[in-house]
């Protein structure tokens, strides 16, 4: 999995071989009249990645997704899917599925008519049309509602149909803007399960305000503020008493992993390491061992609720 730091400097973990990213965005800039919506967002995704976009209202999440979907053109920067420019070739968009913030339903159409339309629009050939629609109806649990008018569906089912239209053509990348928006906890669980199932064979980018959704679904998170990436990391961020989050500028994962009492170490972000302690080790002993090894500790804290902490911290600091 490739990994792009907030500053735009690529940092690849030692175990990952270099790969052409499935979806890459470089230095995306976008402004609306009187407002800079995005200022230099870069990201990169491989198949199997689920990237969560976090940020407050107006941070640039929806604009990022609309740029990645090809709905908007960037003022600067580019989006590539398997090395092909999204904005140069219309056909490239057939490999992307997009759920906007409001599911783009037509109230007069029945669910299966609507999904057939979405499949045709994304270029599914006629012989495969019926199968594609039947498959996605089954995967999204819409069988009992397939003949209902879209305008008569409950919010949860509208959201399901919205996700189904984004995935009906079996795209390589799914872009979902607030897929859990306005759902009750049971519906939210259903949507999470559906997205996990869909994620097995593709990359997904989703935006959400709901941190537990991001933690439950995503293996990477990217925090935006005022159109800029202020933090990016892998998930899960380490949790519990046996897990600590270390921030230091003058050590790498190999030297930290060699310290007594540390069972494993993983890079969360540049200068930020998640440590798992060995069974017999205590945090105090590990601190002493780090100091003995000459590693300057900028901060060391338990990793519980890290996403929420990071969200609050970056929001305060930015």
């Amino acid at each position: 999995m490739s990994f792009i730091a907030a500053e735009g400097q690529p940092s690849v973990t030692p175990s990952d071989p270099p790969m052409t990213p499935l979806l890459s965005a470089r230095d995306l800039h976008r402004s609306y009249p009187g407002q800079q919506a995005l200022a230099g967002v870069s990201l990169s995704l491989q198949r199997g990645d689920i990237l969560g976009l976090l940020g407050r209202n107006g941070a640039g999440k929806s604009t990022t997704l609309r740029l990645l979907a090809g709905v908007l053109r960037p003022d600067r920067g580019h989006v590539q899917l398997n090395g092909e420019s999204l904005h140069m070739r219309h056909a490239t968009r057939a490999r992307i599925g997009f759920l906007p913030e409001r599911p783009p339903l037509y109230p007069e159409l029945r669910v299966d008519e609507y999904l057939r339309f979405a499949a045709r629009l994304r270029g599914v050939p006629r012989p495969r049309l019926r199968q594609a629609v039947d498959d996605i109806i089954e995967r999204c649990g819409l069988g009992a509602r397939r003949k209902r008018l879209c305008g008569q569906l409950s919010k949860g089912y509208r959201q399901r149909v919205g996700i189904a239209q984004a995935a009906v053509h079996d795209p390589d990348v799914l872009l979902l803007d607030e897929p859990g928006n306005g759902l009750d906890p049971v519906q939210n669980q259903d949507i999470r399960a559906l997205l996990k199932e869909l994620a097995t064979s593709r990359a997904i980018v989703l935006s959400s305000h709901v941190l537990p959704d991001i933690e439950a679904l995503c293996n990477r998170v990217l925090l935006l503020r005022q159109g800029r990436v202020v933090f990016e990391s892998r998930l899960p961020l380490a949790n519990g008493e046996r897990h600590l989050l270390l921030q230091t500028a003058d050590a790498d994962s190999a030297s930290i992993g060699a310290i007594d009492g540390i069972a494993s170490v993983s890079v969360q972000a540049p200068g930020c390491f998640a440590l798992t302690l060995a069974d017999e080790a205590t945090p105090a002993a590990v601190v002493r061992a780090l100091c003995r090894a000459g590693i300057a500790i900028h901060s060391l804290c338990p990793a519980g609720n890290r996403l929420e902490q990071l969200f609050a911290e970056t929001d305060d600091n930015a």
């Binding site: 609309r66 979907a69 090809g70 997009f98 783009p104 339903l105 629009l121």
Partner: peptide, 9 residues
Amino acid sequence: ALDLLLSSP
């Protein structure tokens, strides 16, 4: 729904 159309090929 225009986003759906514009994100299509």
